[in-house]
């Protein structure tokens, strides 16, 4: 067997492309194998993520019939109608308000819980489990329980108020209180997950940093401000992004607690999409709204990356 001398190709972008190595690669067959391993994911992503994304975009430019199938191309008409409809504007406003109510509160509460639960105490595992427990409680179950808590006559909240001599509040039926009540439920529901992630972030901070600070005689608040928060910033960054996206996607609580009422006060965007698409079967308008939601979430992610990253300390 004669081995021919091949000149080395200059500027080839990685070693495997060199003439001499190609046959070896072909023999090992890494490339076909790779696609085989990726195939299930690729097919599923194509069918259930990418195709629907483009299909939604397409649907948003069409009117649809009673079965929800596209009929007439109307360009940006759906968007125009959507953006000028008071129902959508109300729903967008409620959603923003809802995000404002829930995200900062959840994160601050979860951070306090995580800081407390990060102390090395006997039986701390028990408290950690309790604090994270809402992660294991489904939207449906917690909504049903809160529905009971909010019940104007039998619910505990109004019972407590009456003990204090205050008139009961119609938590879910009063337009002034409904969004607050839904937010309360949501904060409680998300506290577990947020707590768990922040606790993990705290535990990943190098113990030596604290030991050194202790030797130098730094107080608790100084340590919190100068070590804990900066070191935790990547986790906080992640948690803020995830919580905001989660808040935008809220659905179950609305469906069970208020059905978007009273008078659209809690008609958050996903619930509004659901009603358009699956109750009125107006896929065109619903798709337009989906695209608006998608762009909002994309914007948040982009903004977080742009502004969040600067303040974040990465290890």
């Amino acid at each position: 067997m004669v081995m021919e001398q091949t000149e080395i190709k200059e500027g080839a972008d990685f070693p495997a492309t060199n003439a001499r190595e190609q046959p070896i690669n072909r023999l090992f067959g890494t490339q076909p194998a790779a696609w085989l391993y990726l195939l299930p994911s690729l097919i599923l992503f194509a069918v259930f993520v990418f195709y629907p994304l483009f299909r939604t975009l397409q649907l948003s430019f069409f009117l649809s019939d009673s079965k929800g199938l596209p009929t007439v191309f109307v360009g940006f008409n759906n968007y125009a109608r959507l953006l000028s409809s008071p129902e959508f504007l109300a729903s967008a406003g409620s959603t923003l308000l809802f995000v404002l109510y829930t995200v900062p509160t959840t994160i601050i509460l979860a951070l306090i819980l995580a800081l407390l639960a990060n102390e090395k105490l006997k039986g701390i595992g028990f408290f950690r489990t309790i604090f994270s427990s809402s992660m294991g409680i489904s939207v449906a179950a917690s909504s049903v329980v809160w529905l009971f808590i909010f019940n104007p006559s039998a619910g505990i909240l109004n019972r407590l108020l009456s003990l204090l001599g205050v008139t009961g509040i119609n938590w879910l039926a009063d337009p002034n209180w409904a969004l607050f009540s839904v937010s309360l439920t949501t904060i409680w529901l998300h506290l577990g997950f947020t707590f768990l992630i922040l606790l993990g972030g705290l535990q990943n901070i190098d113990e030596h940093l604290y030991e050194n600070a202790q030797i130098e005689g730094c107080g608790y608040w100084y340590r919190l401000r100068r070590i804990t928060l900066p070191m935790l910033s990547p986790t906080l960054f992640f948690v803020i992004t995830v919580s905001m996206i989660d808040a935008f996607q809220t659905f179950g609580q609305i469906d069970l607690l208020t059905k978007g009422g009273p008078g659209n006060a809690t008609n958050l965007i996903v619930y509004s999409i659901y009603q358009k698409a699956f109750i009125n079967f107006d896929f065109g308008m619903a798709s337009a709204e989906v695209i608006v939601l998608f762009l909002c979430i994309l914007l948040i992610t982009a903004l977080q990356f742009k502004f969040g990253e600067r303040k974040v300390h990465y290890q």
Partner: peptide, 10 residues
């Protein structure tokens, strides 16, 4: 060992 290829040679 064959874990890396050669550019040229035998």
């Amino acid at each position: 060992a064959g874990l890396e290829g050669m550019t040229s040679g035998t």
